[in-house]
Design a protein around this nucleic acid. Sequence first.
DNA 1: CACCATGTTCCTTG
DNA 2: CCAAGGAACATGGT
Length: 282
Amino acid sequence: MPELPEVEVLVRYLEPLLRNKTIRKIGVRRERVIAPTSPRQLKSVLRGTEFAGLTRRGKYLLFNLRAARTAKPFIVVGHLGMTGRMYLLPEKAELPKHAAVVLNLGKENFIFEDTRYFGRFTLDTSAVENLGPEPLSADFSAESFSRGLNKSSQPIKVKLLDQTVVAGVGNIYASEALFQAKVSPKVAARRLKAAHIERLRQSIRAVLTEAIAGGSTARLDYEGANGRDRLFYFGSADISVSYEERLRVYDREGKPCLVCGTPIRRIVQAARSTFYCPNCQR
DNA sequence: CACCATGTTCCTTG
DNA sequence: CCAAGGAACATGGT
């Protein structure tokens, strides 16, 4: 699931479901995802606390909690890694195979499921402190973006994945933004002209904004153990258009560019796939 | 068996 | 100390 738009959609979906609920029991089924917090530490800190709110920073979820008695606020940092999901299930429902953390809220359980266990649900907030500006905020200015790029010899596509330059862009939307801006993924970040940087900045914003409006990309529904779908589509988000259809270049190797018809190319940069149109992006 | 996957961190090298 | 490149993490799909 995880780039900024998917996390944003998830946060909006979960926030009203969690607000004011009390954590009664904490189950840690995979210690790696809470590291460096220990299971006993997590349990002693979380037990009896209430969800005060849920926000997002880059691809991270920030669970704002307050101790019931003292009302002392603190934060749990969540991250979905590559395959993480978060949702509620009835207390009696069978837990999914890869449930990493389970919080009992009374009649329902909050589930953090992650097949690859690359995600996080931890008291350690250090990862969030090194993030660059939020791409949809005024902090992500032309000056800030230029500063983030102008010293780097790395290809711009690779640099867009650097979360200290701008927070929340991942492998899919990096290709999408470059395609929309008509910027080659291969050009060294420091070689980009001001006009290109500005076009790319606007495209990053547009692509992320559109994806949030689209509701979600990867599906947020959970397939129950018995094969029945438990739907986790949210609100009035329009899901009539599929994930693949909303992406204009990602995963379209060999298919015609939607602008000029040239076959889309796939290359590997920093061990990740990049998709681009060799004609439009130069 | 081979290769691919929405991410981050750690280690090495220069 | 910094930048860059690559491996590692862990599981599943095709």
